[in-house]
Amino acid sequence: MSSGKIHPTRDAGGAPVREDSFRFPRLSLRFVPVWRRNFLVWRKLAIPSILGNLADPMIYMLGLGYGLGRLLPEVGGASYIVFLSAGTVCFSTMNAATFEALYSAFSRMQVQRTWDAILNTPIALDDLVLAELVWAASKSFLSGIAILAVIWALGLSSSALSLWVLPLIFLVGLAFAGLGLMVTTLAPSYDFFMYYFTLFITPMTLLSGVFFPIEQLPAAFQALAQVLPLAHAVELARPLLLGHAPDAVFVHVAVLAGYLVVAYPVALALARRRLLQ
């Protein structure tokens, strides 16, 4: 290296680097120590965390399922509580991933400055955002399993096909963690998350066949549901819990995976813009 020579900064390949440039994420296993950090924190509060994640959806599922269910004939070829159970698994997995990727990740990024501490080590932002993504999905996975366990225990699903819900909820967790991290890396404060819930999560929940069949909706809303990740999650979970193979599996998986593979690089680019300027 010649001393004192001034030249523009170049990346490893020699191409000039623009500060705000989007580049493809570099995936590595270095995300694991960060995932373990979050896991260690969670372990200290595991019991209240699981109960908290379980109680709320259970109250809705059992309350609406048995209460409202008495007023209804079969819904979608099953009793209402069986119908509702598939929606509840997907809905609470989504919620658990979303809360972790919004509030908890924001605390680590902005309030506790945990991300700053980590970025001073050999861990790159790519690894850090990947760790947050996988961690939020892992936590939502546990939350989904807890609901699934109750569904199995109550005899609401007894098919071996329902085991396929396990990989499904992990994918659902990843997709919503990715979307949540995009919002977090844009958020000036916690208040910002209210927009995300009011404008996206809540309407989506009502349009995705969680509480009632999508077919009840006007045609325009049914069409809109075709692009909503939660709707595709429910389309897979419901037949699996009822014990028959879902239709168009590839399409549903592709939409969920599509949200993930777009959201993670976008969240990373936003994080880079926010933290590495």
Binding site: M1, I6, T9, N120
Partner: peptide, 12 residues
């Protein structure tokens, strides 16, 4: 520390 891109310069 490589946490932000300089406009120019050499850092070892």
């Amino acid at each position: 520390l490589g946490l932000t891109q300089p406009l120019a310069g050499e850092i070892t």
